[in-house]
Design a protein around this nucleic acid. Structure first.
Lengths: 210, 210
DNA sequence: CCTTGAACTGAACACCCGTTCAGTTAATCA
DNA sequence: TGATTAACTGAACGGGTGTTCAGTTCAAGG
């Protein structure tokens, strides 16, 4: 009696969130009005407040869900700490690229609209972002300690790799020159070399630059 | 008689642009009102229109100036095409990091507010961005042809490197753990390895991952 | 068939938006 | 000193903002 299966509400809520995500990603949180979101769903603006307390919560929920999904999806995809760090790193690179490209709008939102969150909400999203970064950083530290990786700074390498991988979402087009799989192959090769042993002597003179 | 030296206008224009840049970077173009910009300058909103035709032009001018400054500053810093590609790449990495960190607001604007440009203005900024990317890409292609670099895809390596370098602006703090110079050193080492020869056999088994 | 109540409308609330413009101010020049 | 004019004010313009809420609708439950 409290809940009817197949009710309209079960589908309208997700539809609002989908419309908001798409519009926020395309035009930015501040540039999209509740009336525009409502129109995209085919409803009056007032009806949105049956599903969300306010506009800010709509943004926060989208970002929060994305970060939680990201983290738990990686924890499910992680081949495990007993495997060699380079194996785990390869899994991470492939996972991050595929997961991000399949959720371009959510990824865009989650690092473009941080400044539109209230301080409290910002802190919660930041914590999740750091949690995800720590997953990668611990892989790099394991590789460092095991001697299979050579990185000048684990924290900076983490940030550099994530920036490099996430940047793909800003230019990748499914109908472009390269498929998602091919892009993942190429980026894995670059990432592998970034953390590889520092056998830089194979091109003489590069260090003797003024 | 047309221009008075030391007039108020000579300083108010730049002050408006500085305030707009700071506010746009912190809160986003759409979230900042002309009245807020005016208040930051200590003037009424209407006075802004003595210096800019509209809000959109204010944004475009900031982004356009930043891109032009970036490109011409690199062209001045480029050690020249007669030098080894790895030398030029090192110069590029150091230049990009230092230039970006000294202009955090402008960098932030120029890749966060692209979607708030009118289609015409967007196309003009995009062209400048591509011009800058081409500077790096041609270095990588030269290294590829000369055999001193080994990259799976010059275009993707360009995008990966720029994303990696520009990402620094999102976390770098002048009073943080590492100085700008130290960060540049670390990133150069990572960038160098990314484009280095593919002597990946120094850690056996990494390629035999399922 | 009638009641219930979830889903939704449409109008209203107070306020903010970018932009314009008739005036005011104050400094310069002849 | 008086005319000129660039710089700026302050009010107004039409319209959009997030949010609320008294009503309407309509399918399901008893």
């Amino acid at each position: 009696m409290v809940r009817k299966t197949g009710s309209h509400a079960d589908i309208t809520g997700p539809r609002i969130r989908a419309a908001a995500q798409s519009l926020f990603a395309r035009h930015g949180f501040a540039a999209v009005s509740m009336r525009q979101i409502a129109a995209a769903v085919g409803v009056q603006a007032g009806a949105l407040y049956f599903y969300t307390p306010d506009k800010q919560s709509l943004l926060f929920d989208l970002m929060h869900d994305h970060m939680q999904t990201l983290i738990s999806a990686w924890d499910a995809a992680d081949p495990g700490p007993e495997l060699p760090p380079l194996v785990r790193l390869q899994a991470f690179v492939r996972f991050h690229i595929h997961h991000s490209l399949e959720r371009a709008d959510a990824v865009f939102l989650s690092y473009m609209e941080l400044r539109n969150l209230t301080p409290d909400n910002f802190a919660r999203i930041e914590a999740l972002r750091r949690t995800y970064e720590d997953r990668l950083e611990s892989i790099l530290r394991a590789g460092l300690e095991g001697g299979t990786m050579h990185i000048p700074d684990a924290k900076l390498a983490t940030l550099a790799l994530i920036a490099m991988l996430t940047g793909i979402t800003t230019w990748f087009r499914p109908d472009g020159r390269l498929s998602c799989d091919r892009v993942a192959d190429i980026y894995w090769e670059m990432a592998r070399k970034t953390v590889a042993g520092s056998l830089g002597a194979d091109f003489g003179g590069s260090d003797s630059v003024a």
